[in-house]
Simulated assay, not measured.
Amino acid sequence: MTPAIRPVAREDLAAVRAALVASWHATYDRFHGAAKVAEITDRWHALDALARQVDRPGSVFLLAEGEGGAVLGSSLGQVDDAGEACLRRLYVAPGTEGRGIGKRLLEETLARLAERDVWLEVEPRNVDAIRFYEREGFVLDRPAKGCGGRDDLEAVVMRRPERPVPRLVTDADAQDMLGLLTLAFAEYPGCYVDPHGDYPELVRPRSLLSAAGTTMWVVEDRNGRVRAFCGIKGPDADGVAELTKLYVRGDQRRRGLAAGLVSLVEETARARGAHRLQLFTDTRFTKAHRLYERLGFTRFGEERPLHDVSGSVEYGYAKKLR
């Protein structure tokens, strides 16, 4: 019998709790000891705590139901204060591993939370769980400050990088793009945006960038506002393409948007026959330097002054395309 995935009802809570307690002991006794695990699960998975999760607006509390109504696993997802989806909990009953129950619970939970960025916390020694989430597209992000509000529990944050859906820029995107650029420059002392002097092409981006041989993509947020953009120019006669104007809005960073756009530019450059991709970035944009280096770019050449209103000086970065 294929397990059914359905919302948890109040009459399910005792069975859900029993499955959670068994899963926690099977998973965490070796890390924390049975007594501490019992103390934690008695608090976190008490019937009244689970009942509040059933009743909480916006919560997605699901169970996997097997033959005879047996609870084979459960999951809890919620939207956090930042508007991101958080997978608070996902466990399968001991002895049911390897049957695809965890994957089905994960997929159904996230589908009900709609298209949102997703993060979770996991015990760093729980290698099996980390490998499971990695297979489902999550990557290790950073250490957490405790787990579930407890300083005595270690955890790492995993995040599933967003798969951006870029579209070609239009002239109607000009205001959003210039606003995003202004916010990005404001993070660095002495950086200013002069749209008519330094960035006249962004006043009518589709028309003027296309005329200059640049293809530009934007990624929108759920409200239709531009949250990231990036372009490609070339390649030239020597087979060198240029990645240009990669910017991500501050509240949309650490979601895989920049890496996704760079990947799109690389694919486009290869399709156009380029063998090398280069870019230029302000010497003050240290966060951008770390991103490019992580993505395989290396610095080349001498610093390049722009003689603009911000007194910008740029580094060159390049990557060989295979």
Rank of each mutant, 00 (worst) to 15 (best):
D221F: 05
R227T: 11
Y199I: 09
P200H: 05
R204S: 12
M216W: 05
R204I: 00
L208D: 15
G224Y: 07
L209A: 06
S207F: 04
E220A: 12
P205A: 00
S210H: 11
V219F: 02
A211C: 08
D221L: 08
P200M: 08
V226R: 05
V193Q: 05
T215L: 12
D194Q: 11
D194I: 07
D221T: 08
V193D: 02
M216G: 00
V219W: 06
R227M: 14
L202E: 01
D198G: 06
A211K: 12
R225W: 02
G224H: 08
L202M: 11
S207H: 09
L209Y: 07
R227V: 14
L208Y: 09
T215I: 11
N223Y: 12
H196D: 13
T214G: 07
W217L: 01
V193T: 06
L209H: 08
E220D: 15
V226Q: 02
V226M: 03
V219T: 03
M216T: 11
A212G: 09
R222W: 10
D194F: 03
R206C: 07
R204G: 00
T214F: 05
A211P: 07
V218P: 00
E220R: 12
P200Q: 08
D221E: 06
R227Y: 00
D194M: 09
S207A: 13
W217F: 00
G197C: 08
G224L: 06
W217A: 05
Y192E: 13
S207Q: 14
G224P: 08
A228G: 10
G213D: 07
V193G: 06
V203R: 12
P195N: 01
P200K: 03
A228T: 00
E220V: 09
L202W: 15
G224S: 06
R204L: 13
L209V: 03
L202V: 05
Y199V: 08
R222N: 07
P200L: 09
R204Q: 13
P200E: 08
G213N: 05
S210K: 10
P195M: 00
N223H: 13
D194V: 01
H196Q: 15
P205V: 01
Y192M: 10
R227I: 13
N223E: 15
V203A: 10
V219S: 01
P200V: 06
M216F: 12
T214M: 08
A211I: 03
V193M: 08
P200T: 06
L208N: 10
D198P: 06
V218I: 02
Y192S: 10
T215G: 01
D221P: 03
V193Y: 09
V218D: 01
V193I: 04
S210F: 00
P205Q: 04
R206P: 02
V226E: 07
E220F: 04
A228H: 04
S210V: 04
P195Q: 02
D198N: 14
G224I: 02
R204Y: 07
A212T: 07
D194E: 14
D221K: 03
R222F: 09
D198L: 03
P205M: 00
V219K: 03
L202P: 02
G197Q: 14
N223T: 13
Y199H: 15
N223Q: 14
N223L: 13
N223F: 12
R206I: 04
G197H: 12
E201C: 09
P205R: 01
Y199S: 05
A211W: 09
